[in-house]
Simulated assay, not measured.
Amino acid sequence: MNPLRNVNELEKDCMNQIQTDLKPFGNLPQKISLLMERSFIAWKTILKTLDQANEILFKLLDVVISPQCINQLTKMQQCHVCSGSSPLSKPCSGYCLNVLKGCFAEMAEIDPQWNSMIG
């Protein structure tokens, strides 16, 4: 145990043979091993989940918006209620909702699955 003391080969062999009987550290190595194994399993699960979320996000970001939807979204930006520029304007919220539901219907379909994955 003394790092300053030189140990010869015969003593090393003797210590290696009786180390399992002496157990100088008690059951601490087994406890540490078990705790590390549990933490590595948890991290493996977290990393796997993050990888799956990453793949899903890349698929979501690969959405192509049609030219018709681009025109409707441009018109929607001119609506005072949709853009939030004038609260005194005549409401056109129905138009806003119809455009959003029509152009982003694919996103609305995956919303429940996305929320359950995040949960």
Rank of each mutant, 00 (worst) to 15 (best):
M1I: 15
N2S: 08
L4M: 11
N6Q: 11
V7S: 05
N8M: 04
N8L: 04
E9V: 14
E9L: 13
E9Q: 06
E9S: 06
E11Q: 07
E11W: 00
K12L: 12
C14Q: 12
C14N: 11
N16S: 12
Q17S: 10
I18L: 10
Q19H: 04
T20W: 03
T20H: 08
D21T: 15
D21A: 15
D21L: 15
L22T: 02
L22V: 15
P24V: 08
F25W: 00
F25R: 00
G26F: 03
G26P: 08
G26H: 00
N27T: 15
N27A: 14
L28C: 04
L28W: 02
L28T: 07
Q30A: 14
K31D: 07
K31R: 01
K31A: 11
I32N: 07
S33V: 13
L34W: 08
L34G: 09
M36H: 02
S39M: 14
A42H: 10
A42R: 05
A42T: 07
A42K: 05
A42D: 00
K44H: 09
T45G: 03
T45Q: 02
L47M: 14
L47K: 04
T49H: 11
Q52D: 14
A53M: 15
N54E: 11
E55M: 13
F58Q: 08
D62P: 01
V64Y: 00
S66E: 06
P67C: 07
Q68T: 13
Q68R: 01
C69P: 00
I70Q: 09
N71T: 15
Q72G: 02
L73S: 01
T74G: 09
K75Q: 05
K75A: 11
M76Y: 09
Q77P: 02
Q78H: 01
S85L: 10
S85Y: 02
S85G: 09
S85T: 14
S86N: 11
P87I: 14
S89Y: 02
P91M: 11
C92V: 05
C92K: 05
C92W: 00
C92G: 02
G94D: 13
Y95P: 04
C96L: 04
C96W: 01
C96H: 06
C96V: 08
N98M: 15
V99W: 01
V99Q: 00
L100P: 03
L100R: 01
K101F: 00
K101D: 01
K101C: 08
G102A: 13
F104P: 03
E106T: 14
M107H: 07
A108K: 01
A108I: 15
E109W: 02
E109H: 10
E109L: 14
E109Y: 01
I110D: 08
D111P: 06
W114S: 07
W114I: 14
W114M: 12
W114E: 03
N115R: 12
S116Q: 10
S116C: 13
G119H: 10
